[in-house]
């Protein structure tokens, strides 16, 4: 598979009065054509900032740093803001969490769908309109042509998110970044939207990065998973491998929090992870999860390398092998 995006040692820091907040602390990952990578983690772990950093849409105070961000063979660190603007909405597109507020209330759906393609591809108004209707139909909106003259306030949340998806696909991007695309939607609509993203990915052969805190979503759509904690990727690998043999104590904790039909007995307490996320202000030595981890030892305070524990399965934990053995034992 050809690699669409490859990121090495991405860092995002935000200077605050209390010190520098290291929101993303050196993460590396790749996404290939036609593949879905899920970035999963709890609120504040840096997953949304990661996606904004890729698009270079970070708030002006936040600083982005990386050893390499390569997209379709282009080094994004070297293209500058003008170069990024040429790619944004064109070869890389993004869908946001809040469909209710992500569309401009003052312009029609058609206007907002068409402006990107007219800018990037220089197509005529008619061609842009045809493409908009085609994509609105693709994302399952009925009476697509008449929707073009409607305003965002005339559409429901689910419809608006479909419009956002159609908008992201207007220029036929190679990479689609979806930042919690279903969080603000009803459960039934969530399932439809996820299904839609998956279908469209297959049809247009895109690389998709899907950001979520919902492991149910991950299980549904991901090919590969990267679990983030406190600005780092602590475990990554194929989705089946991560769900069947979670190795990092944090990933195990997360999976323990989910009730499993048929396995979790009625009235049984679900798992929790004790403690709280450490402050991300200032430098952090050793494993960020150590203060909440039942496997923690003195060695965890030292620098942690990422270990490969199986093909396509990497874990950032010095005790990965032991944890894996214990976990395998408890499962047996």
């Amino acid at each position: 598979m050809t690699t669409t995006l490859s990121v090495e040692n991405l860092r995002v820091s935000i200077p605050l009065s209390a010190g520098v907040l290291h929101a993303v602390r050196g993460i590396s990952f790749e996404v290939a054509k036609g593949e879905t990578l899920c970035l999963v983690g709890e609120s504040g772990c840096g997953k949304s900032l990661t996606s904004l950093a890729l698009m270079n849409l970070l708030p002006s105070r936040a600083k982005r740093d990386a050893d390499r961000i390569e997209f379709d063979g282009t080094d994004l660190l070297g293209v500058g803001e003008r170069g990024m603007a040429r790619m944004r909405g064109n070869s890389m597109a993004m869908i946001f969490q809040e469909p209710m507020t992500s569309l401009n209330p003052a312009y029609t759906i058609g206007n907002q769908l068409e402006e990107g393609i007219r800018l990037h591809k220089g197509v005529s108004a008619r061609e842009a309109r045809e493409r908009a209707v085609y994509l609105l139909e693709k994302v399952g909106i009925t009476a697509a042509a008449s929707r073009l003259t409607q305003y965002p306030h005339q559409l429901s949340g689910g419809l608006r998110q479909r419009v956002m998806i159609a908008m992201a696909l207007m220029c036929g991007p190679d990479l689609l970044i979806c930042d919690e695309p279903t969080t603000a939607l009803d459960v039934t609509i969530q399932a439809q939207i996820l299904h839609l993203i998956k279908d469209l990915q297959r049809e247009f052969d895109m690389a998709v990065i899907l950001i979520t805190h919902d492991l149910g979503v991950v299980a549904r759509v991901a090919d590969r998973v990267a679990v983030m904690y406190a600005g780092e990727i602590i475990e990554s690998g194929d989705v089946a491998e991560i769900f069947s043999r979670p190795t990092h104590p944090y990933t195990q904790g997360l999976l323990n929090c989910i009730p499993v039909p048929g396995k979790t007995r009625h009235g049984e307490r679900l798992g929790t992870i004790p403690g709280i996320v450490p402050s991300m202000i200032g430098e952090m030595a050793g494993c960020a999860f150590a203060n909440r981890c039942s496997y923690a030892q003195d060695i965890c305070q030292q620098h942690v390398e990422t270990h490969t524990v199986a093909p396509n399965h990497a874990v950032r934990c010095v005790r990965a092998e032991q944890v894996r053995t214990v976990a395998a034992g408890s499962l047996a």
């Binding site: 603007a85 944004r88 909405g89 401009n104």
Partner: peptide, 26 residues
């Protein structure tokens, strides 16, 4: 700082267009 201005930027629109078309009108 609104979401729809972020959307406009994510479309790759030029800063002037984002400012005058999407932000100032509202």
């Amino acid at each position: 700082s609104s979401d729809y201005v972020r959307t406009a930027r994510a479309k790759g629109l030029r800063p002037a267009k984002v400012l005058f078309k999407h932000a100032l009108r509202n």
